[in-house]
Design a protein around this nucleic acid. Sequence first.
DNA 1: AGCAGTATGACTGATTTATGACATGGGCAC
DNA 2: GTGCCCATGTCATAAATCAGTCATACTGCT
Lengths: 230, 230
Amino acid sequence: MAANILLVEDEPGIQELLKFNLAQAGHQVTAAGDAEHALKFLKNTLPDVILLDWMLPGMSGIDLCKRLRSDERYQPIPIIMLTARGEERDKVLGLDTGADDYITKPFSPRELVSRIKAVLRRRAPQMTDEPVEINGLRLDPTSHRVSGRGQALELGPTEFRLLHFFMTHPERVYSRTQLLDQVWGDDVFVEERTVDVHIRRLRLALEPSSHAELIQTVRGAGYRFSAEVG
Amino acid sequence: MAANILLVEDEPGIQELLKFNLAQAGHQVTAAGDAEHALKFLKNTLPDVILLDWMLPGMSGIDLCKRLRSDERYQPIPIIMLTARGEERDKVLGLDTGADDYITKPFSPRELVSRIKAVLRRRAPQMTDEPVEINGLRLDPTSHRVSGRGQALELGPTEFRLLHFFMTHPERVYSRTQLLDQVWGDDVFVEERTVDVHIRRLRLALEPSSHAELIQTVRGAGYRFSAEVG
DNA sequence: AGCAGTATGACTGATTTATGACATGGGCAC
DNA sequence: GTGCCCATGTCATAAATCAGTCATACTGCT
């Protein structure tokens, strides 16, 4: 995967420890000692995940979490709460603040890493860098390559993202609007019909290895990526 | 799922929190701060579910609920009451107002989402995205696919909606008018006999897997989807 | 048989999707 | 900076499919 992670943790020891472990797992980590620094950082950069300590000097992790959740700019970023307390009450409260997951100290780095992975997959499965392969069609996010039964396929950037999204969300119909949101981004102002054009370009690109039929039109509903026929 | 939800809640914090969580679950949320705004909104749009805070400035949630229940236009819309008090007395009172469910604060977003799902299933089963299967005939709303005993079946948009409605409302006769309301929409201006034609098209589409007989004609009354014979 | 309700096939306008062409604009090489 | 090239989004038009209506044939019931 290799995600950009914002770590908000006041205790230097734990901060270092986590930074090291996450870097070890291939992530890019930025650390902030309190909510203020975190917010300052977020002004300029949107990380892929936020790790948030429960207890922070000044604004608490909970409050920061709530605040982030109320801002639509940060709303889609997954948040994982780090907490020392393990009571059920707190867990529920944690989820109520809008956090996607919580993890109770002490925890193993391995656990943290896998939770990050899980949360990324849930929010934006196409973000993970794992190669996907369906019916001999293979897409590798790391090398940014696509091949059909060994044969290399050429597709443009948008077609690549579109295919990546489809392959990580197969067997499901997506309307043009949904595709625009997911593949183009929430805030783009693009004609719905543009999707048709990119679908066509994607199909053309997949033609050489006869994988074009994986992209199916569902009249009145949208498009679907499916390994099944029809 | 993906329902249109009207949220009536005066406290901005909770309103935001819920809006976020519901949006996260794929719903479309409109928020109103009090009963008046809610009513104004309802004049133009009918949501699929209404979330109603117990305590509201001005007209209380309870009163609003009663009022909505007395208007047949709003009567079929499921209402879920949000309440901070947990006493049994209140619960009963809540149900007496005509609410379909109540949920006591604090509650987890997960719980709320699942209650919404439950309430939708009860009131409008065809809205939920769960696959339906009857007698080997299977319809999956997410992938927008229909198959009979493994064999893929082709049906047009209207036939798909019609079948979905039937499968989620089996063993019950619906008049042509009712079907027009439920499948076509309340406001369409279409000849009643048109239903016959689509019934026929649906039957033709189901023929390949011999599921056509599930669509039964009830002379003088309408049509019925039934797994039982004749 | 006669009647009312239902099935069926054909037709037409309307809607939805596919396709090819084009204008724009950014990035890159030089 | 200049020019070229590719990618992107939009449009016009063609093609495909669908929805609704009607005329007619059929069915079951009394």
